[in-house]
Each structure stands twice: as C-alpha cells, then as structure tokens.
C-alpha cells in the first residue's frame, strides 16, 4: 500500500523558534541597518534547509557576523533578554578559521536547536560568530550572568560538544562588564 508514513512527511518541530541574522560591516550605513534577519525557523528540516543554503561562516568577508537567537531576542546586549546575561567566548586563531570554525559553529547550532543544555536550555539566548582578520570569535549568549552554576554547566557542555580539550580554558563575560569597553580590557566573570 502506498500510504505515506506520517513520520516521513511531518516536519520535526523544535522546542523554540529561532531567527538567523546576518551582519555586514558597511561603514556607509547605520549600524542597525547592517543587521538583518535572514529567516526564522522552528523545525529541524527548515534549519537544515537554511544551513545547507547559506555560505559557511569561514567564507564570509571579514567584519561579518552570523547570529542565531531565539525568536524575539535581538543579537545585541542591549536587548532586554540579553542585558542581564553574558557570553561564553571562544577566540580562534587565524589558522582555525579553516580547521575549526565551521565545525564549531555547526555544533553550537545543533546544541541550540536541539535544546542540548538540558534544564539550562531556558537560559540560552543565542549564539554569534564574528569573522575578523585578527581572529574569529564564537559566542554563546546566556540570559542571566548571576546564575553561576547554570552558566558554568552551559560552558562545560559547550566545550564538550565542540571537543575543546579540557586544558583549554574558555571565559564568560557579563555584558554589563563589557558594555562600552574595549574587548581586551574585559575581565572574565568565570572560566571553565
């Protein structure tokens, strides 16, 4: 009988809806005009449709960002849902753009959409990858920097998912500490 198995036709729903953003550093335009939503998605199939048809992060021009955030949260610390939070930051060296960047970004996205942070998944806002000549950066943004245990567990799960060796330390920066300061002077709230 040619009755279709529903499993093969129904898209697999995600716990959350997500928006993928693109930022291109066009100095001739206002910063906010350079930041746009590519699309939103709330199923596994739509995620793959999007991911398979967008340029890999490693091939973006310098100065560009990709961000994937829960629908309703803008990829900026000023957003009410980001303000009290912070980000786990992974700094890549120049050679890691070709060796690690795309894998790190995909593994991070799979953790996001699959709710891979267990009971702490509600504390996740989104993730951003910044393509920069001086070294690319990947950030996982959380909702509340004061939730220390939850934030540390999120950091450990991120390292585990990206196969970051335990001896490599990553740092968590609270947005309230970084707002308006040059990147290098910022002190990590904690590390794992």
């Amino acid at each position: 009988d040619d009755v279709l198995d529903p499993e093969s036709v129904i898209k697999h729903p995600l716990q959350n809806s997500w928006a993928m953003w693109f930022f291109k550093n066009d100095k001739g335009r206002d910063w906010k005009d350079n930041l746009r939503v590519i699309t939103t998605f709330d199923t596994v199939e739509d995620f793959w449709g999007l991911y398979n048809h967008t340029l890999p992060a490693s091939r973006l021009q310098s100065g560009c960002d990709y961000s994937v955030f829960k629908a309703g949260i803008q990829p900026m610390w000023e957003d009410a849902q980001n303000k009290k939070g912070g980000r786990w930051l992974i700094n890549l060296n120049k050679s890691q753009r070709q060796t690690h960047l795309d894998d790190f970004w995909l593994e991070t996205l799979l953790c996001l959409i699959g709710e891979g942070f267990d009971e702490h998944s509600d504390d996740i806002c989104g993730a951003t990858v910044n393509i920069r000549t001086k070294g690319d950066k990947l950030g996982l943004w959380t909702r509340d920097a004061n939730k220390i245990e939850a934030t540390k567990k999120i950091g450990l799960k991120l390292k585990e998912s990206l196969n970051v060796p335990s001896k490599i330390v990553i740092g968590f920066q609270a947005h309230s500490d970084t707002a308006g300061k040059a990147g290098s002077t910022v002190k990590n709230r904690f590390t794992v």
């Binding site: 093969s8 697999h12 729903p13 995600l14 716990q15 596994v44 199939e45 793959w48 398979n52 593994e107 799979l110 959409i113 699959g114 709710e115 891979g116 998944s121 998912s161």
Partner: peptide, 18 residues
Amino acid sequence: GTRIVYDRSRLMQLRNSP
C-alpha cells in the same frame, strides 16, 4: 512541561532525510 530535545546524531540523521 516536556521539552523537545534532539541529540546531535538525531539532527545529523535528519539532515539527509528527503
């Protein structure tokens, strides 16, 4: 309530489904 969770292997498996 219940949470819809997909582990990495399930998501990769669904990457290639039609």
